[in-house]
């Protein structure tokens, strides 16, 4: 099969490139377009570090043959901060110490963007479910969940002052009683 010209709308900009058959969306983003925020953690769809939004839905870019998403809209982490200003999810990740090594961060934030776009007031369970395909080896997940819940509050315009973000998954008394 010959290479073909594929077009995508990447972070709002129409882009065209020559793609070998079967080349992944991740390879196109990282190598052809120089968008390296999405990472290759496993190249087999099991870690979530390459997550981008395809037509507003989270997708593992490492598993997608780019010709199968021709003409789709693709959003990457590079497209999130407008004019260098961090959005609510990004600033919440910073403020809540939700990053350590940073390798899973791009995927986590893209999943959070998709979640908050469809549900401005997610529950803790909704957040856990949304990021359940994304591996983080550093944080233990809770700081990331707190950051996403806090981002939702920020996006809803609620004050971020005094939010401790420590809401336990279940009441402590219940858990300790035997």
């Amino acid at each position: 099969m010959p290479s073909q010209i594929v077009s995508l709308v990447v972070n709002g900009e129409p882009r065209e490139f020559i793609a070998r058959p079967g080349v992944t969306l991740l390879a196109v983003l990282r190598e052809a377009l120089g968008l390296t925020a999405a990472k290759r953690g496993c190249a087999q769809g099991s870690c979530g570090t390459c997550t981008v939004l395809v037509d507003d839905r989270p997708a593992p870019a490492c598993l997608i043959a780019v010709e199968t998403v021709a003409d789709c809209s693709v959003r990457t982490l590079e497209g999130v901060a407008v004019g260098g200003n961090l959005d609510e999810v990004q600033s919440s990740f910073v403020d809540n110490f939700a990053t350590q090594c940073g390798f899973c961060t791009a995927g986590m934030i893209m999943v959070a963007e998709a979640l908050l776009d469809r549900d401005p007031d997610p529950s803790e369970e909704d957040v856990a479910e949304a990021i359940s395909g994304n591996v983080c080896r550093c944080t233990g997940y809770r700081p990331i969940m707190i950051a996403i819940l806090d981002a939702a509050r920020r996006r809803r315009g609620e004050s971020v002052e005094g939010i401790e973000g420590t809401a336990p998954a279940r009441p402590a008394e219940e858990a300790v009683s035997r």
């Binding site: 990004q90 990740f93 403020d95 990053t99």
Partner: peptide, 14 residues
Amino acid sequence: QRSDARGHVTGRTE
């Protein structure tokens, strides 16, 4: 604040 956090959340950390 972590000095590397901004790079991580913008994808600019290399």
